[in-house]
Design a protein around this nucleic acid. Structure first.
Lengths: 248, 248
DNA sequence: AAAGAAGCTTGACCCTTGTCAAAGCGGAAT
DNA sequence: ATTCCGCTTTGACAAGGGTCAAGCTTCTTT
């Protein structure tokens, strides 16, 4: 449980070679032995090309997947073909949690760019959790975090106007990118206007118009998928009132 | 902790006396010994009057709560006071899962009628899960089910029109009530139009108008909070296309 | 290099839903 | 029983966002 694993920069890198999990998705204090056990369970990573499905709604559920590199969307489809994007995922984030309840995946997961994932066979993670309490606890926390995230999306979809939704979306993206060491104010959107709209409960035209409006006000610059935040504070002001009362 | 009060005929009752959990919320195969352990962990139930808070957003998280009798809503509030109802809960359903991630409750839970809950101290459930694999697994499934539920709400909020939302809401309520042995087509709404609207991302006037519209079409009758479904199939047709492609 | 497809932007118009207001009703408290 | 307050219904109007359509850019494919 002690951190004998932080010797040099090197050690960190080495211990993370299998998967970026250790850094982002499972940042828990494990001792060397426990790490070894975990390594034994985490399957080699799988590469996906842009547009490829990682799994589809209705398929049997066996594993969770952690994004190692790249970018994914998850979505649920209705019978008449409407799509609801339920999330965009970047490195360290976990997909497939919704499959546990019924042993069947509840959404599609699609790579939005060439990507790499780690596969976590759920049965084995579950039993490993019994041996490593902190791992078990971490899994509960991960699932809980997903529930919190979903509740915030409900707040967004239920209460916010188009401008507020888009501002919240951009700021969220910016924050997550900067956490991962990317520029917070200059990034490339990996998804289309339509996918953004689906996530935000808006039509693609509204997304486009609202981006243009933000640009006209000098709050950001839009060049197709290239976004530069210029006055992030103006965006923050926009959503100041309508975000969760107890911060993140 | 066990209620040694009821015997024999009530054998079933006995095993369920502590809490309705066993029937609805933890319907897993446990042997006698494991049941005893579980009983030792489940705290005596707590009674709440209508309008009373079970917990509030921001409070420290220690326990999950299972509804034993009564009816609850959970909601998140934004800084400027907008409320988003994130769920309505009836017997056997679990509240507080969103608190695990940060050890702080992420929503308010409020009794909509006089109610009774069981308290499940999370730490102890967690460690009990390590001894009883099926219990651990069940907890993962419960959390996953919550995620699935939230995704369906996103689909509702992101894609459906007012009529579709309300139809989906009523049918969901009907289905859950009938699961619990209540009439599927004749029930009392425990929540106000405003709370329904908050949950569905609509204003209370829209809820009211839409209910009136359904009544005019002969699909149901509305007498204040008393709803009678007359043509549930018409409601089902309404949402046929826009529900999740893979059933429940 | 050319051509097609896909994605994006913008405008015009309309529909659904929100907003504001008034009045009715019922339940809770005195 | 009475009164008051909160909830609900309904109408009129406004507006935000959806729909349809046209034209444009960029990327892909051949």
């Amino acid at each position: 449980m002690s951190d004998q694993n932080q010797h040099t920069i090197h050690a960190l890198k080495v211990s993370c070679s299998n998967c970026s999990l250790r850094e982002l998705c499972l940042p828990i204090g494990l001792n060397r032995d426990e790490m070894t056990q975990l390594d034994a369970v985490i399957r080699q990573s799988r590469r996906l090309k842009r547009g490829e499905y990682l799994f589809r709604s209705g398929e049997g559920f066996k594993s969770l997947f952690a994004v190692r590199t790249g970018f994914f969307k998850t979505s649920v489809a209705s019978q008449d073909g409407r799509e609801q994007v339920t999330g965009f995922l970047m490195s360290g984030e976990l997909m497939g949690l919704d499959g546990i309840s019924s042993n069947v995946h509840g959404c599609d997961a699609i790579a939005l760019e060439d990507s790499e994932v780690c596969e976590l066979p759920f049965n084995r993670m579950e039993s490993l959790g019994r041996d490593i309490p902190s791992l078990q606890h971490h899994f509960f926390r991960l699932m809980s975090r997903e529930i919190v995230r979903d509740q915030n999306v409900m707040l967004l979809l239920g209460n916010m106007k188009a401008e507020e939704r888009l501002a919240a979306f951009l700021l969220n993206l910016s924050q997550r990118l900067s956490t991962r060491g990317f520029a917070a104010n200059d990034f490339i959107l990996r998804m289309s206007r339509e996918e953004i709209g689906s996530f935000l409960g808006l039509k693609l035209e509204t997304v486009s118009r609202t981006l243009s409006k933000f640009q006209q006000q000098g709050w950001l610059s839009v060049d197709h998928k290239h976004i530069q935040l210029i006055k992030a504070d103006a965006l923050k002001d926009l959503i100041a009132g309508c975000t969760h009362a107890n911060g993140v």
